[in-house]
């Protein structure tokens, strides 16, 4: 049996609608950012993924999640 990891998932802007703001979720070891995006249905959201950060740094969807990581997901946002 694979070990579990705890990941803090933070959602922003429209991704919060019908989901949540922040939640600690247990995933199987070996989970990637993309797995989390799919688990939350964000890959099917009408707004495509804009920015993905892990521990406050921009990362690729293929990044392997580690225990204690924080993943932050944003649709395309902007301002100035």
């Amino acid at each position: 049996m694979s070990e579990m990891i705890q990941v803090t998932v933070k959602l922003f802007a429209q991704y919060r609608d019908n989901r949540f703001k922040v939640k600690e979720i247990g995933y199987k070891d070996g989970t990637t950012a993309q797995d989390i995006i799919e688990d939350l249905g964000i890959h099917n959201d009408k707004l495509p993924l804009g920015v993905l950060m892990i521990n406050s740094k921009h990362q690729e969807e293929t990044t392997l999640m580690r225990d204690g990581d924080t993943i932050s997901l944003f649709p395309k946002v902007g301002g100035g």
């Binding site: 802007a13 429209q14 707004l47 804009g50 395309k76 946002v77 902007g78 301002g79």
Partner: peptide, 15 residues
Amino acid sequence: PISGEGLPAYGTNVL
């Protein structure tokens, strides 16, 4: 998506 969705919904303060 930014000028069409994000800015109208949340304003510049979405930042």
